[in-house]
Amino acid sequence: MTRLNTTYLGMKLRSPIVVSACTLSEEVDNIVRMEDAGAGAVVMFSMFEEQIRKEEMRMEAIMQSTNNVFAEASDFFPDLDEYHVATAQYLETVRMAKERVKIPIIGSLNGITPKGWIDYAKQLEQAGADALEVNIFYIPADIRLSGVDVEQRYLDIIKLVKQTVKIPIAVKMNPYFSAMGHTALQMQEAGADGLVLFNRFYQPDYDILQLKVVHDLAYSEAAEIRLPLLWIAILSGQIKASLAATTGVQSATEVIKYLLAGADVTMTASALYKNGISYITTMEKSLLLWMDSMGFQSLDYFKGSMNQSNVSDPTAYERANYIRILEGAKK
């Protein structure tokens, strides 16, 4: 499959189709299936620091609340010495995956405290992760925070993690920065070896009968690719960091578009939830068919060929393009 070779975070991948962080990777068997289906790499499901801490504390609280309470029962569960906490389970999954597959395994970490970032990043590296995806899911709900404050928070985390581990790191970023491009550049300078565009913030909905906030996860749609597509097209060629596109990859069409924009890899999860892991093979076949029809021997023939610096009309990505669209809409 040399025709699909790509490089991401300095790693040679057999395919630009990468599985993004999702619960499918909780099972090592699934990771093996992903490799068999042709995935270039797998980003592990996210390790959420607060979730881990909460779970550890919850378990301990329940255990402790029942220990030494009555004369007849000093405890209610078998001895816990041999128990592994959620982190250990995660790391074990990484270790087992590394043993069973050849493709790179990218750990995904979502921390909340500096100590959490350092501790867990280290552990992931020790467990054998080939790279680390830093998933900074942060909504600046505190309206006193300025844009600079928020950006600095991201940069501090990137620096911290970069200092902690030797493996490459990618930053899963969101699009809500005043100057996306500049922020991306700053992230690269802070140590990011790659940028993953974009993190989809899970936005709440309301149940108008129960008067409750509803938190549900909607799969991404192909129509959502335009924002990441725009920014990959802008950043590609302007920054050195690897670029991964991760929203709306429902078929080979989106893979192709992202590659044309300059993405090194494209990531998908929704499509696999909908169609099964074997769908990676389908997408790959479609990609190859398209490449055949276009006469492209490898990704190098077209990757980034439609980014901002390569298109004949670079303003297509800027304000003029917007005006053109609006005018087009009038007709």
Binding site: I52, R53, E56, M59, E60, L80, Y83, H84, K115, D119
Partner: peptide, 12 residues
């Protein structure tokens, strides 16, 4: 005591 029960518990 808490070695295998997680850093969170130890930290607290």
């Amino acid at each position: 005591t808490y070695f295998k029960k997680g850093k969170a518990v130890i930290d607290q």
